[in-house]
């Protein structure tokens, strides 16, 4: 009976993962390997294709109600733009997508059984500290050694192009590529990922938590469910559960470096304003 409960929990979390996260690992891997009936992603590999890619996203993502109104501005392609302006605008776009992703992760967290019964301040703390870790894990399936899918899988941006940007933009994604290439070798699927994300969110050692015990109890149940899931789903992968948990240590370092880069950007780039939601998360984080 106990393992039936753990399986039910895994199924529930997988269903809410599919509900709240539009681009699954299965879909991303199909796009990356060309095994999808959809058209291939648009490739951004230099400043010119970045400008063209911007136009591509703007034209495809505008809701029909706004399309006419914004058509003249479609693409925001300003021919005289300097590389600096294009980089800053791209960064702002990443921020908007990240803020939207925080909303998706929040909805997923709310669907974890017991999460909404936790103290509201603790729910905030768990999200504040967990959300960037979750976003980095969710980025992994979108990446391979050569680049990453962005804009819901519509665009592939090359790793070399990201490395060619000026500092610190060029330094921001490289650590995520290094992590993702190793993480992808564990070959977790979407149903494994759903449980792992819940484990990350339910970390009882986040600074400032008021009531740790119920969080640890919830995490323990999800951990049991993840352990069982990995044994059943990957019977030949020895010690996979331990290997997955070890990734949580790397994640904390990645987040602290990421926050450092953003603080650096805030100081050095006068044109950059941080999204208010991301500001809330990053302020006094580490």
């Amino acid at each position: 009976p106990e393992s039936a409960d753990l399986r039910a929990l895994a199924k529930h979390l997988y269903e809410s993962y599919l509900k709240y996260f539009p681009l699954t690992k299965a879909k991303a891997r199909a796009i990356l390997s060309g095994k999808t009936s959809d058209s291939s992603p648009f490739v951004i590999h230099d400043m010119r294709s970045l400008s063209e890619g911007e136009q591509f996203i703007n034209c495809r993502q505008i809701p029909p109600s706004l399309a006419n109104q914004q058509q003249s501005d479609c693409g925001l392609l300003h021919p005289g733009d300097s590389a600096e302006e294009v980089e800053v605008r791209f960064f702002q776009r990443c921020q908007s997508r990240s803020a939207e992703a925080v909303r998706e992760v929040t909805e997923f967290a709310k669907s974890i059984p017991g999460f909404m019964e936790l103290d509201l301040n603790d729910q905030v703390t768990l999200l504040k500290y967990g959300v960037i870790e979750v976003l980095i894990i969710m980025m992994a399936p979108l990446m391979n050694k050569d680049g990453t899918l962005i804009a819901y899988g519509q665009i592939f941006m090359t790793r070399e192009f990201l490395k060619s940007l000026r500092k610190p933009f060029c330094q921001m994604m490289e650590p995520k590529f290094e992590f993702s290439v190793k993480f992808n070798m564990l070959e977790m699927d979407d149903s494994d990922m759903a449980l792992f994300l819940a484990v990350i969110i339910l970390s009882g050692d986040r600074p400032g938590l008021l009531n740790v015990k119920p969080i640890e109890d919830l995490q323990e149940t999800v951990l049991h469910s993840l352990e069982l899931q990995l044994k059943m789903n990957h019977p030949d992968s020895l010690q996979l559960f331990a290997k997955v948990l070890q990734k949580m240590t790397d994640l904390r370092q990645l987040v602290s470096d990421h926050v450092h880069f953003i603080q650096l950007l805030k100081k050095t780039e006068v044109d950059i304003c941080l999204h208010p939601l991301l500001q809330e998360i990053i302020r006094d984080l580490y």
Binding site: S96, A99, E100, V102, R103, T106, E107, K110, L120, N121, Q123, V124, L127, K128, H275, P276, L277, E280, I281, R283
Partner: peptide
């Protein structure tokens, strides 16, 4: 609470827009 008002709102209401 003031420091994290958007997170609070997101937790209490799923329709809160984030693109402010």
């Amino acid at each position: 609470k003031e420091k994290h008002k958007i997170l609070h709102r997101l937790l209490q209401n799923s329709t809160t827009p984030v693109d402010l």
